[in-house]
Design a protein around this nucleic acid. Structure first.
Length: 849
RNA sequence: GCCCGGGUGGCGGAACAGGCAGACGCGUCGGUCUCAAAAACCGAUGAUGGAAACAUCGUGCGGGUUCGAUUCCCGCCCCGGGCACCA
């Protein structure tokens, strides 16, 4: 094209420009921000990375999404905070140190530098002044401060209970960190149960609010909210107290409380169950003939892994303890059994068994020959007619195949007989009222959520600031003595932890001054990531965790971007921290992340890229070949951000080709004589319309995160522009319009391909300032609208003709034009037109029979 | 079992809010340029039939609503994810 042109147009060479602009932006401080009350703020944040080594495609995708959003908001006139840091405590550093015979810190900080360099090469618009690493003393000291403050608020607890132990990581794990039926979230080993004394954050105190406030997060994916709601697992029901009897059946002073969602079925409780781990079990059977069989059940349960325990079709085992409890509703003596399907972790570890209404109890009753008296029957069951007026128990067994857990009518249930009932039925309310009046129970809510186990028996983490004093007990390290510095002379290659370092743990009690021992466990790394987004607001503050005004200016995060794998880990913990901070008066809001985008995975051949599978495509290699800009644009072009995508090298080449075409178009436009006449022709008008339409489209698409279709629209604009240039003669070209189109292309692409856009803007188009300080191009809906439009004509639902009509043509004339078009006449020949539907500006639908 | 997603050409994907299914890109095929190739550019590309005009079919399956359904409703199938012996 443009044959005979004398000057040589520069080609698109990403490597000649990318590093150059990265250095310029740094020097100009382009992405440093401060609070500015005159402009609306936006806080755009991607989940900070673990410094695992080289960056991978998942990073490229995550951070490219955030970068486009941040740059777009900046162009829209917002004051945008877009920080980066590293989640740099954690086990992989210890493992790597052992392998390479070095120190976790060496490995960690080397990786941080490596990743930071990669992020710079990608051209991400971070405010590097706010950079942080959670393993820095200036950071983790505030994590310890949080621990002490939580302690003051009664949110820290040290207790003994059955916990998850990962034999490979050699540490305990929180419930949230045990995934897929009992494997460690990090190393995928099968987790064991151990009874250990550990540190907890009392997240359960916030269970209700964590659940309720999900409704206040319309900007979160439904999927994530559903997962959190599931995890919190709220159940409504009642606590019921059963009095324990002695061997002779005489009531004792001891009461055992159970939680049930179906207090309306109390009359059908024919046995009572305790979890094998229940503290009372041993005492009940001690020195009796029942001790042997009960121990068998306990031993068997203890040997099972969580995998066995959760397998569905599983035999239920139990043993009678020889003891009884009294059913409060009818005074009946009910045998107490130990059963392996009762979980110590849920409710009180004791269950009232109602075999007619619960499938597990039903199966257990059948196996051990226990009675199954029906107490809730559906009206269509033959038992209903027989029992509908029976208040006393006359039937003690059913011929059912399974338990009846659905709605029905209460029978054999004393004064409640005849009451309709079910999960939320009238019977439930009435029985609860009855129990409350007599002091046998109360309405109650139970949560599946457990307290957050935060102690870890590993070196490379934030030391728990607590002291064990033989006199004063557990004492927090006073805040003015913080931080408890993690010593660097621990040799993890020899398997050492803080517990092997007397220099570390030997101390004095801050209360009594006596000899004491420092806590040697470190905190779960998820405690570090639960508040980093707040620290970015005031990252260099040495006097306070953050200045409240700064946090209140920037927070909450307007757009958070990260992987779905944190749906109930990091995202739940961070919500909890934020609510506590609010109660402490540190912030004014209750939720940290207003909008959440969970990006999909990057796959190759249908599998996630992984070193072990050997299907990793290295981003660095792609940058070398095609430049960071093409990589950024391409990873966004492949699919909407929340969907998984399949990597394709050919596709990346296509993106590079597109960028080269943009480059050529802009370069040729910049060279063209600006003296061209204004071209009133249809081609120029169409191009002008397309320019306006595309700006509007790209704007709309970015705002709903459809980066793929936004880029498609830019491609369409380029296609229209090159078509126009080819079709228009040299003399008639509207060079001013082409210049406008070229600048528009550069501005629209600036968030995606920041280096190329900058080079074209400053060096090729000759502007003084950075394209990244420019405003988003304006557009006008009227200018985007065509004067003439194509209207489709359907006859009986099939497209038979197309009409070109004026955009403002009245319906009646469109109707006439449709009915007289030759194709339509052909298809309605011999038929009667029954109906004509006109959709303005779109189509005419003719019904003829 | 319960709760979320999803199913559209050879491939990635598009279709705002019931209105031309397949935008845009990849791949493939054909062409221009070239001694030749690469690059670049131009054109074709859902399936079937046809030389073509065109016709019929087509968004997981079966129904329904509607002038008109990828879109709404009912009933299924398949795939992915979460929870699950939770009382």
């Amino acid at each position: 094209m443009s044959a005979g042109r004398l000057s040589v147009i520069r080609q698109y060479e990403p490597h000649e420009i990318e590093e150059k602009w990265q250095a310029v932006w740094d020097a100009e401080g382009l992405y440093s921000v401060t609070e500015d009350s005159s402009r609306p703020k936006k806080y755009v944040l991607e989940m900070f990375p673990y410094p695992s080594g080289d960056i991978h495609m998942g990073h490229v995708r995550n951070y490219s999404i955030g970068d486009v959003i941040a740059r777009y908001f900046t162009m829209r006139g917002m004051n945008v905070l877009h920080p980066i840091g590293w989640d740099s405590f954690g086990l992989p550093a210890e493992n790597a140190a052992i392998k390479s015979d070095s120190h976790p810190a060496t490995w960690t900080y080397a990786n941080i530098e490596k990743q930071a360099a990669s992020f710079r090469r990608m051209g991400f618009s971070y405010d590097w002044d706010r950079r942080l690493a959670s393993s820095d003393e200036e950071y983790y000291r505030w994590g310890q401060w949080i621990f002490v403050k939580f302690w003051e608020r009664g949110l820290v607890e040290r207790k003994s209970s059955p916990v998850n132990w990962c034999p490979s990581c050699k540490t305990v794990l929180a419930n949230e960190q045990v995934i897929n039926d009992g494997v460690c979230w990090r190393c995928k080993s099968i987790v064991e149960k151990r009874e250990l004394e550990q540190w907890y954050f009392k997240i359960t105190e916030y269970a209700q609010e964590l659940l309720d406030d999900l409704d206040a997060l319309p900007g979160w994916p439904e999927r994530v909210k559903a997962m959190q709601a599931n995890w919190i697992g709220r159940s409504e029901g009642a606590e019921v107290e059963f009095t324990l009897c002695d061997e002779a059946g005489q009531p004792t002073a001891e009461k055992i409380t159970v939680f049930t969602t179906r207090p309306d079925t109390l009359f059908g409780c024919t046995f009572f169950l305790l979890a094998p781990e229940h503290p009372l079990v041993h005492e009940l059977v001690h020195d009796t003939v029942f001790a042997g069989p009960v121990s068998d059940v306990i031993d068997r349960a203890a040997k099972e892994t969580s995998i066995d325990r959760s397998s569905t079709e599983r035999d239920r085992n139990g043993a009678f303890t020889g003891r009884y409890v009294i059913n409060p509703v009818n005074g009946e003596k009910v045998p107490v059994w130990v059963a392996d399907y009762v979980l110590m972790e849920y409710g009180t570890g004791a269950v009232m068994a109602v075999p007619c209404g619960d499938q597990r109890d039903f199966e257990f009753a059948r196996k051990y020959g226990l009675p199954i008296p029906p107490v809730v029957v559906p009206k269509d069951d033959p038992l209903y007619e027989r029992l509908k007026d029976e208040t006393e128990r006359v039937v003690s067994d059913v011929d059912w195949e399974s338990a009846h857990a659905d709605e029905g009518i209460m029978v054999q249930s004393g004064s409640f007989t005849g009451t309709p009932t079910g999960k939320h039925g009238e019977g439930v309310t009435r029985v609860i009222a009855w129990l409350e009046e007599r002091g046998h129970g109360r309405a109650s809510i139970n949560f599946r959520l457990r307290d957050w186990l935060i102690s870890r028996q590993r070196y490379w983490g934030n030391p728990i600031p607590a002291i064990h004093c033989p006199v004063c007990g557990l004492v927090p390290v006073p805040v003015e003595q913080l931080p408890v510095v993690l010593p660097m002379d621990v040799d993890v290659t020899k398997g050492e932890t803080l517990a092997d370092h007397p220099e570390f743990y030997t101390t004095t009690c801050p209360e009594c001054g006596g000899a004491a021992r420092r806590e040697t466990d470190t905190m779960d790394t998820f405690t570090c990531s639960s508040w980093y987004y707040l620290r970015y607001c005031d990252a260099r503050n040495d006097d306070a965790i953050w200045e409240k005004d700064k946090a209140d200016y920037w927070m909450p995060v307007d757009q958070y971007i990260g992987g779905i794998e944190h749906a109930i880990l990091h995202l739940l913990y961070s919500r909890f921290f934020t609510k506590v901070f609010r109660d402490m008066g540190l912030v004014e809001f209750a939720e940290p992340f207003t909008n959440l985008l969970t990006q999909g995975m990057v796959k190759l051949d249908g599998h996630t890229m992984s070193k072990s599978r050997g299907n990793v495509v290295a981003p660095e290699l792609m940058i070398e070949r095609y430049g960071a800009d093409a990589l950024r644009a391409y990873i966004l072009f492949m699919a909407p951000p929340d969907k998984d995508l399949e990597w394709s090298q050919e596709g990346l080449e296509g993106m590079y080709r597109f960028l080269s075409r943009v480059w050529r178009y802009v370069a040729q436009t910049a060279e063209a004589s600006p003296l061209g006449e204004t071209d009133p022709g249809e081609g120029a008008q169409a191009l002008r319309r397309e320019r306006h339409r595309v700006v509007g489209k790209v704007e709309e698409d970015i705002e709903r995160f459809q980066f793929n279709t936004a880029l498609s629209a830019v491609m369409e604009l380029l296609n229209t522009a090159t078509d126009y240039r080819r079709a228009a003669s040299q003399e008639q070209r509207d060079v001013a319009l082409e210049r406008e189109v070229a600048e528009t292309l550069v501005l629209l692409l600036a968030p995606y391909v920041p280096h190329m856009a900058e080079e074209l803007w400053r060096e090729v188009l000759g502007h003084d300032g950075s394209v990244h300080r420019e405003s988003w191009p304006s557009w006008d809906a009227a200018a985007a609208a065509a004067e003439e439009i194509e209207v489709v004509v359907q006859v009986n639902g099939k497209v038979r003709a197309r009409l070109i009509v004026a955009a403002d043509a009245p319906e009646e004339s469109v109707r006439e034009a449709a009915l007289i078009s030759p194709k339509v006449i052909e298809h309605i020949a011999g038929k009667t037109v029954r109906k004509v539907v006109i959709v303005p500006g779109k189509l005419v639908s003719i019904v003829a029979t």
